[in-house]
Design a protein around this nucleic acid. Sequence first.
DNA 1: CGTCGGCTTGAAGAACATCAAGTTTAGTGG
DNA 2: CCACTAAACTTGATGTTCTTCAAGCCGACG
Lengths: 244, 244
Amino acid sequence: MNRTENSPLARKLAAFVALSPDEFAALKQLHQRRRTFVAGRDMVHQGQSDQAAYILESGWVCSYKIMSDGARQIVDFQIPGDFLGLRSVLLQTSDHSIEPITDIQAVEVLVDDLLGAFAQTPRLAAAILWAASRDEAMVVEHLVGVGRRDANARMAHFLLELGARLALVGMGGKEGYACPLTQYHLADALGLSAVHVNRVLRQLREDGLVTFRDGQVTIHDYDRLVTLAEFDPAYLDQTGPILK
Amino acid sequence: MNRTENSPLARKLAAFVALSPDEFAALKQLHQRRRTFVAGRDMVHQGQSDQAAYILESGWVCSYKIMSDGARQIVDFQIPGDFLGLRSVLLQTSDHSIEPITDIQAVEVLVDDLLGAFAQTPRLAAAILWAASRDEAMVVEHLVGVGRRDANARMAHFLLELGARLALVGMGGKEGYACPLTQYHLADALGLSAVHVNRVLRQLREDGLVTFRDGQVTIHDYDRLVTLAEFDPAYLDQTGPILK
DNA sequence: CGTCGGCTTGAAGAACATCAAGTTTAGTGG
DNA sequence: CCACTAAACTTGATGTTCTTCAAGCCGACG
């Protein structure tokens, strides 16, 4: 096993498509310019144009939009193995801002290289389109949560989804995971106030479901949490490679 | 001008990429099996697998998810020129249901044909990826609305976005458009109760902003509506073809 | 050792949901 | 043409969820 096979993206894609050495090589080709960004300073600002796309190697990032009154809606968090700004590249101009939550490392991906890799290895293309579709499915699920779940179920669902995603890149399991988010991040993601997030977390903790504290999510009762959240990981869990 | 150039999809893509005759031909290749579906009966059901993808030719459709308590969240509406079920095809199993709101006509698209067209005409591929990115941007904007806009602004934004989309396929303008949706559809899309939707519509009407009645949206004061909604059509309006 | 970000808790208020009861409109069969 | 029905819409009264405002706590870090 070489380094590329160990990259979080390769690990994620391998859960979907059994990649050949050639395809691993094509994927490796994309990993050229490695860059570092520090926590808290926006990498991309809403309205900027001609952005690059990245693959996140380490650290956590969030994508968000700001309203004129200062309210913020976090659309998604990115963890290692996720793409950053793929949509911005295609739309020419970024419709959202991107902020590293921790210090991060990311590799820059040139659109031409990506399209080149598509032409070269169609199955890799399928795998990447799968990953993009999965990202979109997560946004959809997020929308459903904000639109139709009450605050408790919304939080439960969020914490479970995050856990499932982290598990896919080997960073968590059903017992919990390390998580650098603050309660303000949760509030901005879930469409709640920070005050209410605090109360919701207290209730989930007192109900013996899950504890969010000191950068650590500890799941006490996975099954009851799943029931509360109506969590169905179908769109995240490929049980095995679909394309042989 | 041939029939394909007049298809709503061709019209929409042409706003992004100036398509050559070859590319129009490739696009036409995709328009093979035409099918009809009647209003109200689901075309695809949440959890079904191995679905086809479609391009909508005429009529309106909605994509939604149902919660166990019967609450429904409409994720998006599709109008002529839009894709249906593209994500379901890539994820193998549909994460949402699709229901025709009116009787519709749609052409079935085979994934292999689509990927074939991609290999044949890369610029068409770019155009279709642009369309998919635009759809995703709409879902993101929808999420922001449900998470951070109050009911009035949310409704205003929704009606404006729909108008802008319809304008792109020649079905509406800044004065208004025909719209077969019921107040229940609006409620399910906006994460509100039908009762509240009714009150919001009354207020927007009494404020002289917009009237939603008898299948017709009439915009009385476009500029004030845009201000209320903080509507920025950047992600919908390509001012002209980006790729020459 | 002061300050600042993050967390916690209480009290009051606003936005929206729910419940209940009409009205209006389009369609349908007699 | 009319009676009947069902879906869509409308409105008022009441209740819940979540927000906002206010205050204080704790630990990290200069």
